[in-house]
Design a protein around this nucleic acid. Structure first.
Lengths: 209, 209, 209, 209
DNA sequence: GATGAATGAGTGTTCATTCAT
DNA sequence: GATGAATGAACACTCATTCAT
């Protein structure tokens, strides 16, 4: 009777009490930890519930299925990356192009420096479901959007190439667990790559078919 | 690298007779077809055996476990890519830098244009096991090795950035099933990216820390 | 029969206040609706509580367990059938035997014509627990009792055969969702069956062992 | 390779070896026993496998799902009933109508005299899925078919009423575990019911609307 | 060598029920 | 009295792998 009218499109419970919010957080944290420790193969619903200190039933009160947990985690991580971008890259907007690019590169690198294996697994799971666009999209459009202010409009392919070249390289470094992931030299090369490509796009002399 | 013969140096039988080689081939082909049709989730050993027209027991006569099949398939695909590189990129070696880069890009693109889903699944499975280095390595070192002939020595990081930027971008296009994967515009941008980066590395004016 | 009041004589609260009675009614109505819409498989206590606009805890304040709800619903439906019989069959008592039989048949058919799926599910659930006697009993004894007034005393077996033949045929029509359930032809045949059997019992020439 | 081409429309294995046939039989027998002992509620796939002395995986090698086991059992029981009908009712064909009806009634009663609870559960399960027509149909059409030789063609409703009145009454006796199920008096009344109805249908004087 | 029947640990998921708030 | 978050036993089902034939 007279429900508070908060019930969303998806049928699962939305936490209204403090305890419930804590539970959701515990589940996501447990998921991240398990991914971190054992990768995607170790991620079972029972394991998540156990590590979250929650019964399996509770887990299903907040998430439709195993996948939904992964998705929620991915969204959370993406939101964190966007936040970092906003915090680090935007303030650099008035400075030189190089500074701006470097800020963006560093924000992305930072995003991957924390829980590598967890991120790896999340990324993997997301890609396996064709949800990449939904989740990577915001980050890419952020990059493109804020660059177009001082730069020629990039084509669809150019935005894609620039964002994926950077993220793909970082991703590879994460996946292959390259030792130089945290080095300044690696960051420098990424910046060089982005600047060079942007320069080539702006002055389209070469590389014409 | 240079393994003695087709199948791993493990305890399982190494096919010495024609029929055995056919069986192995049938299993690998069945695996590729199933991956292509249904992705990694559809790949069960029973399904592979059935499609290969072989009993499940026979399958285990040639492969230690499910993973070994995937690995063998990955090796086969990598070998094909290397072959393409050798065939397409090497003959272009005497021509302009752009031609050489374009040949390499096209060879890599070609490698991904066939069985996208199968490749996607193989790549996914391989990455999930941290075997990327072993398998991607040869391709990367090929690129680096043959470029250094007419080019300044690249640092470890630079080889990594160049190869992974290209492969990562292509990989992303495959994974996200981007419509422009087969377009000339996409190939052009990849070439532009590689040339720009190589140019920046050669003339290291900007982007120095 | 003549139970003191609505709900079982068990340990759970007997509604004494208006609001409580409404709650019980809401729960029963919700149960019927869910059975109607999705059958027995869709009947979960949580679904009932939700549709009744009541918390799951409240539901358990009025019913011992899920089964008790089903039982209460069954009793309610049986009471309705008995009421219909009393209303339709008794007034016909002074008329011809055929009229009386037809009135009884129609009353029974009517009882099944409303919420077929709900009835089906209730009947199913009841039968599954061997409670048929308790619930079908009253109806059967009604038929037998009121017929014996103007008719030779029937043996135990005969009462059983007559009542179950009619109810069993109707039940089968409901369960199999026969299209002619609502047809006049079907009702005619049921009447014919009952009259023929009654006639044969009265004039026991044939069928003697 | 070169499979014997026995593979049926459903994907599950059809037993080709003797051992396999035994396994299927063991599973069906276990199912009947469990139903007999504990009813439908006790029928879990694990219980069936355990009682059959078979692993749960084996069970699923021969049956698509739990339901399929029940269906197979139902079919087996129905086949038994049909066999009994053929054996008992057909030889009586040249004798009096009463003898023929009695033979049919007895065959049906016999069918329910064995494992009452198992039958009860099977019947219940079948009805719950609307498969009644498929399974009861043959028996009903047998009754109708062999009667029409010496008797007026019955309408759809009449065949239904006759067969379901008999089976429904027997079913009720089984479900309610009536003590007279095995008595001669009960059989007599069933015969009387069938004969009376057939007589009334043949001489349609009464029961016209 | 080949077969395929058998295995069983393990998975995701449901839902009746409890009890602290 | 009412709430709804939490519980966890139980379930149906999968699939990599073994081994007697």
């Amino acid at each position: 009777m007279a429900r508070p009218a908060q019930v969303p499109a998806n049928k699962r419970r939305i936490p209204r009490q403090a305890r419930a919010a804590e539970t959701v957080e515990a589940i996501l944290e447990a998921t991240a930890q398990i991914l971190e420790a054992g990768g995607l193969a170790a991620l079972t619903t029972n394991a998540v519930a156990a590590r979250a200190g929650v019964s399996i039933g509770t887990l299903y009160q907040y998430f439709d299925d195993k996948n939904a947990i992964l998705l929620a985690l991915a969204r959370r991580e993406m939101a964190a990356t966007l936040g970092r971008l906003a915090r680090e890259a935007l303030p650099a907007a008035e400075r030189s192009p190089e500074d701006r690019v470097r800020a963006a590169v560093r924000a992305t690198l930072d995003a991957f420096r924390g829980r590598m294996r967890a991120r790896k697994a999340v990324v993997q799971a997301i890609l396996a479901q064709g949800l990449a666009v939904e989740l990577v999209g915001p980050v890419a459009s952020f990059m493109a959007g804020h660059r177009s202010a001082a730069m020629p409009n990039l084509t669809r392919e150019q935005v894609f190439v620039l964002s994926r070249a950077l993220m793909g390289t970082i991703r590879a470094a994460v996946m292959e667990e390259q030792p130089f992931l945290r080095s300044a030299a690696f960051e420098d090369e990424l910046v060089r790559l982005a600047l060079a490509y942007l320069g080539a796009v702006t002055a389209p002399s070469a590389a014409a078919r």
